[in-house]
């Protein structure tokens, strides 16, 4: 059996990287190796995981500096003998080992405007064409792994910006409501500047790391920025008119 040389973060903010050698089997992913580490060497090693199939977005971490789902990162993608460094997501305050405090996400989720659907048709159904919901379905593929939030430079190194910046995952949530074919909520189209969309300068880092391949920037953020300009442009306020 091959041996993985792991370098993993242990402890809280004052913790450090610890090195472990873990024997592993064919076809394994990084999360398997972390489980082996727990079972045989470090039973109290803190890590989040659930589905182990890339569907729940729980096991996010920084593997050799890259934001990754550990369950979808195969061991054979590393050079044999290479040290594999596993660190917690940097954007969020550390709790212990690989587990971070993600309560920020849930606070923002509460502020996203709620869908207010138009009434049903006379036959009790809602009619929507597949073509009209393709974009919405793309946004709704989000598994909330928050890798996009981890790489976003607006919040990664700037704790103070979190107060006024919803972040890429939630721009997608906003776009989902705003572009929903049934929505009639005036709030969702309003796009409050408090969400901080203007901080984003379209570097597309979020899109690059999305394990679901959602075009966060092109299909979510940019169209929302365009609407936001329509809505909040001071010249338009003075002279009126809309596109």
């Amino acid at each position: 059996m091959p041996t993985a040389h792991l370098r993993v973060w242990r402890g809280e903010d004052d913790g450090d990287y610890y090195e472990y050698d873990v024997e592993y089997g064919e076809g394994m992913v990084v999360l398997d190796v972390v489980h082996l580490l727990q079972a045989h060497q470090a039973p109290d090693f803190a890590v989040r995981w659930n589905c182990k199939a890339g569907k729940c977005g729980s096991c996010s971490a920084e593997v050799n500096g890259q934001p990754r789902l550990m369950c979808m990162t195969r061991m054979n993608t590393f050079i044999p003998g290479e040290t594999i460094t596993i660190a917690p997501l940097k954007t969020y305050p550390l709790i212990r080992d690989l587990v971070t405090d993600v309560s920020y996400n849930y606070e923002i989720a509460q502020t996203i405007p709620e869908l207010k659907p138009r009434p049903r048709e006379a036959d009790g159904t809602h009619r929507m064409g597949q073509v009209d919901i393709d974009r919405g379905q793309e946004f709704r593929k989000c598994i909330e792994c928050f890798l996009c939030m981890d790489v976003c430079h607006v919040i990664r190194d700037h704790e103070e910006n979190k107060r006024e910046f919803a972040g890429p995952r939630f721009f997608i949530s906003l776009a989902n409501v705003a572009m929903h074919p049934l929505d009639t909520n005036p709030q969702s189209a309003l796009l409050d500047p408090a969400f901080g969309l203007s901080y984003c300068n379209i570097t597309k880092c979020c899109t690059e790391v999305c394990p679901e391949g959602i075009h966060i920037t092109d299909n979510g953020i940019i169209p929302m920025k365009e609407r936001s300009i329509d809505r909040w442009d001071p010249l338009r306020k003075i002279f009126g008119g809309s596109r």
């Binding site: 869908l115 659907p117 809602h126 009619r127 064409g129 919901i133 919405g136 379905q137 409501v177 929903h180």
Partner: peptide, 13 residues
């Protein structure tokens, strides 16, 4: 669906 779910559609929507 009222709460926002987007199921795949038939040709008549």
């Amino acid at each position: 669906e009222e709460w926002g779910a987007l199921f795949d559609r038939t040709p008549d929507g």
